[in-house]
Amino acid sequence: MTEIAVQVDHVSKSFRLYHERNQSLKSAIMRGRTSVHEDFWALDDVTFDVPTGSTFGLIGSNGSGKSTLLKCLAKIYFPNKGEITPFGRIAAMLEVGSGFHTELSGRENIFLNGSILGMTKKEVTSKFDEIVEFSGVEQFIDQPVKNYSSGMYVRLGFAIAINVDPDILVVDEVLAVGDAEFQEKCLQKFRDFRTAGKTVILVSHDMGSISTMCDQAAWLRNGQLVVAGPADSTIKAYTDSFSTGSGDPATSGDTEG
């Protein structure tokens, strides 16, 4: 029964922290190298599985590596060590509406954004009405998107991404925008996803929504996995760590800066 949707296998990812970053030739030539740097491990040997059909929450303080992990999953970053293997089609919403061209109309942008997200023209055409309906911007669909409010922008972007019809939907903190009605619509969509046996992975700082929506969760702290498992116990461990002061707030202080 517990098939795996995403396998995170000893994943480590480091970034170069530049003490003196100079993207210019002068500095490269003067020093004979491009920069002085040290490696910073944003993810350190993280291993867990995301079961198929689960709604999986990723929690942890700012800078703990959640977005980095999602970007590795979305093939935007590549881990230095280990492997992260999705089983099925992924749609990642790391930022909705990136790739919108502000001078073009909503309609044109649906086709553009759809193809950036990997949909064929046929797919977009067949889902066009659904996308417009979900976004609730029918009236403005032929207006340039620069005239959209930021909420409309997000709604349209979200409506496109959710209609990619992925097996695994990855969402990073993008739902905070948008009004309550739209958030409720999104939650409903996530529930539909789950009943269709699909997997949702989401990052949120709202423990309330994580605990109502997720059945599984993983807690990251300074790039390391603290615990992964049933949502309730993971969230409890996470929130308990504040009150007992066992490490997390103290150590996250220097990463948040």
């Binding site: 935007i76 990642a92 790391l94 930022e95 990136s98 950036i116």
Partner: peptide, 9 residues
């Protein structure tokens, strides 16, 4: 760069 950092293609 915004697109490259947020979407895979």
């Amino acid at each position: 760069s915004g697109l490259i950092q947020k979407v895979y293609f």
